[in-house]
Nucleic acid binder design. Structure first.
Lengths: 237, 237
DNA sequence: AGCGCACTACGTACGGTGTACGGAACTAGG
DNA sequence: CCTAGTTCCGTACACCGTACGTAGTGCGCT
């Protein structure tokens, strides 16, 4: 009776509130918003049950009335971020629409740099994720391929965007907890790399760096990557 | 003097041992191997400084003589795993070689399921990562594009493989710490998904699931993804 | 109407984490 | 030889997720 059996539980099936007892002081959305606020301002590692509870102004253990495990808090955060996805009436040009989707996802991840790290297929079915998925499928209506293929397209595009942004943000998020700056870290790694490459052990890498030693246009790299992904799904190629 | 200034430090530039004092009891490789052993057997979350020290049979704080921060231990682990990459004489067929690379990476990640989670561009320049990169570039010698483009190809292929395997392993690694099994978790999520889709809010997702309700051939999905990536870099398309 | 119970709230406590600090043992360089 | 720079590691601290128990609250049922 009291000791509930260990049964799998998806947070979204758990009703937000039940009839009996005092009214909950917060909604799930309140909690997600607080966690997102903390993560945005202080980084994902600052998101602890205590910190989020403090942000809300309640006791730590009160959170466990809303969220059975910390992992579910993460799931709420991802869903809350997904709510910021702006949806539109599909234009009829699936390529243009998917490019727009990709750019919007990237912007979203720039606003919430912790998102790439939390991106997991496990969280892929939260309410807002479903809404987003349905929207992508709507944008792909003009594309004459099976739904299975469309799913593969969406997964691949999202994957590439996530990987790309994660790479963009990696040192930034990393150096947050380090006693030196991002620039210093970058410089140290670059110096090490130059030294290694100068050793002659890696002739092709040396050639690659010689080819273009200037700064890379990351924006252009991103754009090329998107187009290449979409090209792979163009029919009758 | 004693209080060293906070300067950026790449673990690979730090000499493995210095002249003065007693001989270190372990090599960096010993430590990496111990950490990998723990991660393979008990999951990445079991890799704590105490646990790794116990695995080695030394005091916890002794580890800090070899590794300044836990994060550097992760870097050692990734490099140690990278050492398992088997390199070969390029065949002259860059497509075949890159497919082989991709499959090998996937196998590697299956052997070390914690690898996708640690994959970070920051770790991309460890000794074995450089060796691997040079090998990929060698395989791409027959491809008549710039080194910049080759780098983009390698990054994209690795990214797609990593994302794909991470998805494959997500629930498995996740349920390790949960009081129920992977199958139960999967069933609960599937039930929730069916319920949501049955609501009629997501007509296209419903159609997608109706189209093919049987189990998906993940192997084929992976293969298609690889070919699509490589297609995007085929010259004169 | 009023009782009971399911629920919220949350203080305390436990076992874990990364790692700063300091002291003891050891060995190569001047 | 001596001393300075190491390695080794026990102790300690702040913080983490969360199990458990208690107190108070208000809905639903009788």
């Amino acid at each position: 009776m009291a000791g509930r059996a260990a049964e799998p539980e998806v947070i979204w099936t758990r009703p937000e509130r039940t009839g009996r007892g005092p009214k909950p002081a917060y909604t799930r959305a309140d909690i997600a918003a607080a966690a997102v606020r903390v993560a945005d301002a202080e980084g994902l590692d600052a998101v602890s049950m205590r910190r989020v509870a403090a942000e809300l102004g309640c006791g730590t253990m009160s959170l466990y009335n809303y969220v059975p495990r910390k992992e579910d808090l993460y799931e709420l955060m991802v869903d809350a971020a997904g709510a910021e996805h702006e949806l539109w009436e599909p234009s009829g040009d699936w390529r243009a629409d998917m490019l727009r989707v990709a750019h919007q996802t990237r912007d979203l991840m720039h606003r919430h740099p912790w998102l790439p790290r939390l991106m997991s297929p496990v969280y892929g079915f939260s309410p807002h994720a479903l809404r987003f998925l349905e929207h992508c499928l709507a944008c792909l209506d003009p594309l004459p391929v099976s739904y299975g293929t469309k799913m593969e397209l969406i997964a691949m595009l999202n994957g590439v965007v996530t990987t790309y942004v994660a790479n963009e943000l990696a040192t930034a998020e990393r150096t947050r907890s380090l006693p030196w700056s991002e620039e210093q870290e970058h410089a140290a790694r670059a110096a090490y790399l130059r030294e290694r490459i100068g050793s002659g052990e890696y002739p092709r890498m040396a050639a690659a760096f010689a080819e273009n030693s200037g700064p890379i246009d990351l924006e252009a790299v991103f754009e090329r990557a998107l187009h290449r992904v979409l090209d792979g799904f163009e029919p009758r190629a």
